[in-house]
Design a protein around this nucleic acid. Sequence first.
DNA 1: TCATAAAATGACCGCTGGTCATAACTAACA
DNA 2: TGTTAGTTATGACCAGCGGTCATTTTATGA
Lengths: 210, 210
Amino acid sequence: MGTSERKKREKLKRRDSIIDAAEKVFFSKGFEATTMDDIAEQSELSKGTLYLYFKSKEDLHLAVAMRSIKILNRLTEGLASQAQNAIDKLNTLGHTFISFAKQYPGHLQSILHVESIDFRQLSLSKTELKHVIFKESPVRMVMELVQQGVSEGIIRKDISPGIIANMLWTQMLGLFQFVNFQKSLFEMVDISEDEMFENYMELVLSGVRS
Amino acid sequence: MGTSERKKREKLKRRDSIIDAAEKVFFSKGFEATTMDDIAEQSELSKGTLYLYFKSKEDLHLAVAMRSIKILNRLTEGLASQAQNAIDKLNTLGHTFISFAKQYPGHLQSILHVESIDFRQLSLSKTELKHVIFKESPVRMVMELVQQGVSEGIIRKDISPGIIANMLWTQMLGLFQFVNFQKSLFEMVDISEDEMFENYMELVLSGVRS
DNA sequence: TCATAAAATGACCGCTGGTCATAACTAACA
DNA sequence: TGTTAGTTATGACCAGCGGTCATTTTATGA
């Protein structure tokens, strides 16, 4: 009988519902200000139960971030096989990222968190975590498009595609940071967000053309 | 009589010595793992005294970061008035940043921290803090050099210098991040750090040339 | 209905950032 | 020098947190 299968499904459901709850609280109060008791209350479970599914608050945070990354990846899948040249696709990718950032600011926040983890201070046992994060990171899509561009001959081949892709992704993260946090620091009230984004993309992409 | 002056000096000295102690502990254990008692012990003061000079652990961290920023700024001052063209100066600036990153990894870490503060979650009363940080930020030097470049006609003028400068600074922060944390994530063992840096600079700067 | 295992609970713990009543020290004057 | 007013330093203390675990509750299968 499929009892154990059902149990497994239910366990996953419960895990998911905890992530749901954590998302709500993290996104509204911020990660640091959120307590495990908050999440327990929101999920209608006891605190102890949370620790049956996640081994720490940070672990739960990572789960939230991984889900965010999956959402972002879903928005961009299929792009690589579209009938455009690679640079246009990179442009589209950039637009997708930006609209994601606007639509899901909380999710974006969590992605920025995992992408800036200080791996030096991570215990060695967590090496696999690095690989999981990297494997799922949206930078993969960027790299694929860059490689396409090199094949098409419209992206410079004198610099390693890995470096180019990382630069583009870094730039994307920087733009997120900029739009979300630091916009007010600059005295550029006379430029719209969209305009700024176009400028950014133009600036960044003009460096990679062959 | 200069009694009160001497007192003021001594207060500043004490403040400085606390920052010294905090640096040591932060840089060796990391910010989160450091307790105020650690710093109290290192500074040979009681915990209560620390709170006479800094109103919170984060405040102390900011003081450490501001000192780091000052060190970095000192390394680059005078660059603007040198007899090179602006793009060469930007290149030099990049090299200076990189060697700073290598020489003072702890200081760099603290700078990355303040540069990525989530200002949305900062109370309004701390608006001045934003300005202080921005005013001291090394991005100022970048902006000055970009403006020089525009005047010289070697940097494109169709995009606002503010955006260009921010892109370059963002890129610098991203490169720091990359070198320090994520290098191992990429399978590019066959490229030296210096080579990678040169590629990076070339890539970034080629986008800003007019 | 009962026995076994799995899941959930919440009282509890140790540690941390931060506070505050008290103490120690300093400086100026009588 | 003794007194006093003000400043600086102390460390016992607190509340809140992440995390644990002995106990209870629930689900399963015969």
